[in-house]
Design a protein around this nucleic acid. Structure first.
Lengths: 241, 241
DNA sequence: TTGAGTTTCTGAACACTGTTCACCAATAAC
DNA sequence: GTTATTGGTGAACAGTGTTCAGAAACTCAA
């Protein structure tokens, strides 16, 4: 039995701050943990229980701070845009500015596993993202595009980024031998497969086997981006009708 | 107790063909049922158990014909292309041909609920789909495009179709009051929201509120498609380098 | 017709999932 | 120092994909 008024001697007392000061949960910490789980387990492995385990906490504790798994995913999506600065629109260099915007977007989407899947499932019209949308619109306006094009060009570009990165990650998932010469092997296999098709029935696939596979994803992204930008540029100066 | 050797009298025997002749399961029937469930319950409600229930069959019976839920989804994806005929390439009218291709694709994606979600998760390079890819490539070749553009233009177009329809359905899900004046109400609400933003911080959003929302999805799809086609067309005649 | 063999389907189980709810502990307010 | 309020617990519920021993139905040869 402990004597209530006696001081506990140092060797009895566990080292100071035995129980860590219980830094409380918060949306921020939950999102951090969710990203950790996402990177480790992928989108399908991202469960509330895994997130809770990452924080050494019971599942139900999460629901104090977050209504849903949907809300958690929305918070993760929002973070995608943190510190995503768009420059002031420069009418002289709007194409290069948009190129940079798209490159930066792709880089962000690639920075977390399966991020494109999450991005694809959300519309960038939540209040937190509106300043972003506004600045993007400003760049199209500065370029001298007609209203109707301004109104959809941002969507077009975003869809391209999301879709491209999503497809990148689909291929990656098919060849999960992470690291090493996996991409090399993948290239060879796919190229060999295309090249081995009957040339009478698939002349173009056989012919294009090398160029379809040889080019890096970076190159393909840039080319697709350039196609879209040329298409948009073709509207510069057209009246609003 | 039944007497084993006595014939059962007619009034005892249930009416002829009591038990229906047990049309056996097949991949086709399973995919049919899966589509029925998809249209009724949406992608999140599409479970193996629901599909089994649709067929009045135990869940585990499905696994005799189908390895995975993944395989089932792949079969559903494949069916998207059934009877999806591409015309012979006509160098004079390749743009109109591609427009039709995209329109038809969107129509198919819209013909089943959440179909775009399934389509987005698959790469159109399964053996069954290669003839399709081949014909699409042929159209780009006929248009006189350089190899590198041919190699990615199909992807670009498919990504656009999938992404556009997916976004359409995301909006639809946000306003699930099916039928009636729901789209009207949606338009008004969104437009009102954009218009109500502080004009000093969001001048472009406020300015463009009407044109961003007023236009029908059909119109927006056509415009985005036209942008991409113009971009592609800008490469006609360029050398393969 | 009988019987063997193969295919197809069943029911139960396993290990998960998201979400809720009564309860308990720690903190903040008076 | 006692009371609220908030944050966290553990168990439970209904649902998920998938597997597996065994029963039922079909096929085909004797």
């Amino acid at each position: 039995m402990t004597q209530p008024d006696m001081p506990t001697p140092p060797w009895e007392r566990p080292p100071k701050r035995r129980r860590p000061p219980r830094v409380p949960l918060s949306r921020e910490r939950i999102v951090d943990a969710a990203y950790a789980v996402l990177d480790r387990e992928g989108y399908d492995g991202l469960s509330m229980r895994q997130v809770a385990a990452e924080l050494h906490v019971a599942v139900s504790a999460l629901y104090v701070h977050v209504r849903d798994k949907d809300e958690l995913l929305r918070l993760m999506y929002n973070r995608l845009f943190d510190g995503y600065e768009l420059p002031d629109p420069d009418p002289e260099h709007w194409r290069e500015q948009l190129r940079n915007f798209a490159r930066q977007g792709r880089k962000r989407l690639l920075s977390h596993r399966d991020m494109a899947k999450i991005s694809m499932a959300h519309i960038p019209f939540t209040p937190e993202l509106l300043p972003h949308v506004e600045r993007l619109l400003a760049m199209f306006v500065a370029a001298g595009l007609p209203k109707k094009v301004v109104a959809i060009a941002g969507d077009l570009l975003s869809t391209y980024m999301d879709g491209f990165v999503l497809e990148e990650s689909l291929w990656r998932d098919r060849y999960p031998e992470s690291g090493g010469a996996a991409p090399e092997k993948m290239r060879e296999e796919i190229q060999g497969y295309f090249a081995s098709l009957p040339p009478d029935r698939f002349p173009n696939l056989v012919e294009l086997a090398d160029v379809m596979v040889d080019e890096s994803n970076d190159y393909r992204f840039e080319l697709g981006l350039e196609i879209i930008l040329r298409g948009i540029a073709s509207y510069v100066g057209e009246p609003d009708d």
